[in-house]
């Protein structure tokens, strides 16, 4: 009997949404379980790291790795799974671009620990207890992974064959990618799969009239017209600078695109382009008015790099 191809799924710095994205294949998950021999899936199944360590190199046919790399355990698993896998897939935006955990690149280990273990109002930590890399107890040594200053994408740590964008990737695309894997129908390595080459604007069915705005609004500040472009109504929508293929589901429930599918194929830095487009359509020549309108965006860095700070050109906030 022919050996079933091996499949591994791993979660690094993630929220668990990508696990749910795979499970959301509903009945099709049974097809996947039928087609593959799953060798690692910490969320769902009981395999241990040592089960992976004993596998021969490149014996895992496909590994879907979700989550960003922010500590030494995740880095270790990235290297391990790279060694053991023929095809390593950065599944989901966190693995592809850093994702929401990537926003931590506005801070560093010290400031995060200071906040979490000292400054938060409900914390009582007079002895200044901090996580240690190792701690001796009578029974032996306890270790914790090292928490890094900077969050990285998977590809910034190990070479990656394919990238599946999405926070999480939509069901149809996850299905398509797994189908392609099962049929051996993947494009050249290095490609983004499970997405289109056009922007979210192409997926979105709203009516576009005139891209000129006199101010920005947060989604809660106005009740937008559900048939017209949100950006034209002043709600910042990243769709014009975001790769499509998701079907624009957020737009269909009156919420703006936040950019989770990452930059379009020909864009070097998603945040930079989004900033350029937003600034360009502000409809005034008056300097004071420009400043006033610009000031209505509360967190420009957050808006532009919500999902992709580690993958951006500057990668992180500069600190002394």
């Amino acid at each position: 009997m022919a050996q079933k191809p091996k499949l591994a799924l791993y979660w690094a710095a993630s929220c668990g949404g990508c696990e749910i994205a795979v499970v959301r294949l509903y009945a099709k998950i049974l097809d996947v379980a039928e087609a593959f021999d799953i060798v690692l899936w910490p969320c769902i199944m009981d395999f241990k790291y040592k089960d992976v360590e004993v596998l021969p190199d490149k014996s895992i046919d496909v590994c879907l790795f979700n989550g960003a790399i922010r500590n030494s355990e995740q880095e270790h698993m990235a290297h391990l799974l790279r060694e053991k896998s023929k095809v390593l897939v950065a599944y989901g935006t966190c693995a592809y671009m850093g994702g929401i955990p990537g926003l931590a690149n506005v801070a560093n280990r010290e400031s995060i620990f200071e906040l979490v273990y000292h400054d938060t109002p409900s914390t009582a930590n007079d002895n200044g207890v901090r996580p240690q890399l190792s701690y001796q107890v009578p029974e032996g040594e306890l270790t914790l992974p090292e928490f890094y200053d900077t969050v990285r994408t998977l590809a910034q740590v190990v070479p990656v064959e394919y990238f599946v964008p999405g926070c999480p990737p939509v069901r149809e695309q996850t299905e398509a990618v797994l189908q392609a894997v099962m049929e051996g129908q993947l494009p050249a390595p290095g490609s983004v799969v499970g997405a289109s080459d056009k922007t979210v604007c192409y997926d979105c069915t709203r009516i576009r009239e005139d891209k000129r705005i006199r101010g920005f609004h947060r989604p809660y500040e106005i009740i937008p017209d559900s048939t017209h472009c949100l950006l034209e109504q002043g709600i910042i929508c990243a769709g014009l600078a975001t790769r499509g293929g998701c079907g624009a589901p957020c737009l269909s429930v009156n919420m703006p695109c936040r950019g989770c599918y990452g930059p379009p194929p020909n864009v070097f830095d998603q945040g930079g382009k989004l900033l350029s487009a937003l600034a360009s359509i502000i409809d005034t020549q008056d300097q004071d008015e420009i400043e006033r309108i610009a000031d209505t965006v509360p967190d420009l860095l957050g808006v532009c790099y919500l999902f992709g700070l580690p993958a951006s050109m500057l990668r992180r906030v500069r600190q002394d």
């Binding site: 506005v106 945040g271 900033l275 350029s276 937003l278 600034a279 360009s280 502000i282 020549q285 300097q287 420009i290 400043e291 610009a294 965006v297 967190d299 420009l300 860095l301 532009c304 500057l314 906030v317 500069r318 600190q319």
Partner: peptide, 20 residues
């Protein structure tokens, strides 16, 4: 040049956020 002015204004704001 007016477009440049708008873009640079926003970019400067963001650079500050980046610690530059």
């Amino acid at each position: 040049n007016y477009k440049a002015r708008r873009r640079i204004h926003l970019l400067r704001k963001m650079l500050r956020d980046f610690g530059i």
